[in-house]
Design a protein around this nucleic acid. Structure first.
Length: 198
DNA sequence: GTGCGGATGAACT
DNA sequence: GTTCATCCGCACT
């Protein structure tokens, strides 16, 4: 059921981002399993993409995990507060990654609600990149984690969406990146209420 | 060593 | 619509 390594090793990061929409993301923290279906994802390409932290293949302590072979997690701290979860793709030496921006919670709703400390409308639980990491208990400890192991992983949900139901648009929050801000590398499920609302 | 700002979210007015 | 929480990475000196 877990997606195999070769799924992540393909060279076209935008294609993989699209393929990830509809797949299921799981975590297991201290025996508490939580999971949800990916409904929104964005592709970032290190070599050519100004919006990517590893633009021009810039390798630093933070970005070095993106240069590893695909199928591992890239988690970083944003605004000093939020952990954002990415999936590293492509073969070793290519710094490509896919930001997961929203999931539809499917497993461990009680734990998710507790982590989100919220009894508000459930649609708010995981509809954003910082929200879903908190809901699924993803933090900096997961940086570099192998997505084919048992701490954090991705499964084929068995659900497939036709191309009519997957929309592509420009990415969120990358206005600073000039021409690359216009790349349509954000993919999400049409009319799905769990997609983030920028 | 220092300073700036970010792939956001929540709580305000 | 606006504000602010909160801290590391990174580009300088």
């Amino acid at each position: 059921m877990k997606l195999p390594k070769h799924f992540y090793l393909r060279p076209d990061v935008a294609e993989i981002a699209r393929d990830l929409v509809g797949k299921s993301l799981f975590t297991n923290t201290n025996g508490r399993v939580t999971g949800g279906m990916i409904v929104e994802a964005e592709a970032y390409c290190g070599a050519t993409d100004r919006a990517c932290h590893a633009y021009k293949n810039k390798c630093t302590d933070r970005t070095k995990v993106m240069f590893d072979a695909g199928g591992i997690a890239y988690v970083y701290l944003c605004y000093g507060i939020h952990c954002l979860f990415n999936i590293v793709t492509n073969s070793e030496g290519h710094a490509d990654a896919i930001l997961i921006r929203a999931v539809e919670p499917t497993h461990g709703l009680d734990v998710i609600r507790m982590r989100r400390n919220s009894d508000s409308r459930s649609v708010n639980l995981t509809s954003g990149p910082g929200k879903l990491t908190k809901a699924l208990g993803i933090d900096l400890m997961h940086n570099g984690a192998d997505l084919t192991q048992d701490q954090i992983w991705i499964e084929d949900s068995g659900i497939t969406f036709s191309s009519d139901h997957i929309v592509s648009t420009t990415r969120i929050g990358v206005e600073y990146s000039g021409i690359d801000a216009f790349l349509s590398w954000r993919y999400y499920i049409k009319n799905n209420k769990w997609v983030s609302k920028p």
